[in-house]
Amino acid sequence: MRGEGLGIEKLSVRFGGLLAVDEVTLSAPGGAITGLIGPNGAGKTTTFNACTGTVPVTSGSVSLFEHDLSHHGPASRAQSGLGRTFQRMELFDSMTVAENVALGPEAALAGRHLWSHLISPPRQRRDIAQRADDALAGCGLSHLGQHRVRDLSTGQRRLVELARALASGFRFLLLDEPSSGLDKIETERFAEIISGAVASGLGILLVEHDMALVRSVCEYVYVLDFGQLIFEGSMAEAQNSEVVRAAYLGSEAA
């Protein structure tokens, strides 16, 4: 075991006859970026969905900073500090960039109590605005605040989704292919942002196909194939591993 953070213990997810995730055990510490890689269909996104409670788990458990989340719903897991982004971006398309980012912390505060769905005290409003501004600035989106997210490019939309997650004050983030649709410069910028975010103690589990990005930010990677964990170790070890190469057929890891 490598410290606290997100702990996944013997997690299995079955869709009918297909075992999408097969007894996966992994742990990702706070304050670092851990990679979760594997070929298409390996079960990476399903693992994420199981962690956040959006697909039912067949067996196994998920914990966050040693707090068992297995029996919580998606919203309550988010309340516990587990955030995520989506492979297929889930933005509030009718709203502006600033409104999108502000809704992250707002939703987190709203979900706490029954009455907090209805009323926002002025102090919270200021707090939300402050956090949203910080996140926008941190992701270099301040100049786009009043644009509608629907009008942005894919790369910018990915950044909005990240900014929203960063503004929400999560303790651990699951990022699902955040760099797909980003160009080289945007990817580098993205790597800087998430590296900066973990410096303040945030833990990240990153699903990614861009191996250059994984190499540059992850100290430790897990490799999934056909729902099974086939390797764990440093990125350099992963690239030298025969098992990993076989899984990728040498195409992407090369």
Binding site: T52, T54, G73, P74, A75, S76, A78, Q79, G83, R84, F86, E90, L91, F92, L103, G104, A107, A108, A110, G111, R112, H117, R164, A165, S168
Partner: peptide, 8 residues
């Protein structure tokens, strides 16, 4: 996304 940010 709303669920993922903590509002049921």
């Amino acid at each position: 996304a709303l669920d993922a940010h903590g509002t049921n």
